[in-house]
């Protein structure tokens, strides 16, 4: 699926991965937290190589993920969705975890939803809760796997707004797979273009949108940016 992908993400960097469907963007980010197990090659986080043995603990300590389908826990209310991992995995006290959760609910603008169940919320709201859940783990890295692709058009913006705010105000390393080019241009430190499992172009947004020499990227941008 992936061929010769060599990526180095710096601490605090906001990296956006774009490309056509089936190009391996999602697989790339899913390898970063071992949801896909690489058949060859290495994933190294904080100088530590991810292996079959250590991946659970390494992932727990270093990365969080926001999914296309939100994947909130439907049997728990919002507050418990946010505090489950901190309390059970990170040894945080319930009180402290709830304080943190309230803080991040405020960040995503859903303070009033602490005690409702996720299925009663709109897609956009669920995704903002999912972002808050990722933040509650206080990991250095958050992976976003097409966070707006499953949303109604009118709720996409509220999720993007939260992500822009995060990108601008926090030092979290963000790796984002998205089709939202405007958003990519706005937040990315670096844009990576993938096709057929390979990285065929990478650079700053300015380079990527205005100065690329790569014909394939030009064609892709031509199709996407025309309207």
């Amino acid at each position: 699926m992936l061929k010769d992908v060599n990526l180095h993400v710096k601490e605090g960097e906001k990296m956006v991965i774009v490309g056509p469907s089936g190009s391996g963007k999602s697989t790339t980010v899913r390898c970063m937290n071992y949801l896909e197990v690489p058949t060859s090659g290495k994933v190294i986080i904080d100088g530590e190589e991810m292996t079959v043995r250590n991946h659970t603990k390494l992932v727990r300590r270093t990365t969080s993920m926001v999914f296309q389908q939100f994947n909130l826990y439907p049997h728990l209310d919002v507050m418990h969705n946010l505090t489950l991992a901190p309390v059970k995995l990170h040894g945080v006290s319930v009180k402290e975890a709830e304080e943190t959760a309230r803080h991040y609910l405020e960040v995503v603008g859903l303070s009033d939803k602490a005690h409702v169940y996720p299925t009663t919320l709109s897609g956009g709201q669920q995704q903002r809760i999912a972002i808050a859940r990722a933040l509650c783990a206080k990991t250095k890295i958050i992976l976003f796997d097409e966070p707006t692709s499953a949303l109604d058009p009118e709720t996409i913006q509220e999720v993007l707004d939260v992500m822009v705010k995060l990108a601008e105000e926090s030092n979290i390393t963000m790796v984002i797979v998205t089709h939202e080019m405007g958003f990519a241009r706005q937040v990315a430190d670096r844009i990576v273009f993938m096709e057929d499992g390979m990285i065929i172009e990478e650079g700053t947004p300015d380079h990527f949108f205005n100065h690329t020499e790569n014909e394939r990227v030009k064609k892709f941008l031509g199709k996407i940016l025309r309207h």
Partner: peptide
Amino acid sequence: VPAGQFEAAASQGFNTVQTMVYIILPQAYR
């Protein structure tokens, strides 16, 4: 229980037993 629940649990660093106890079994029983 949808596959996404296993993925969400794995992405948070729950091990297999924890995933079952806290996330999958409660939903399955429900």
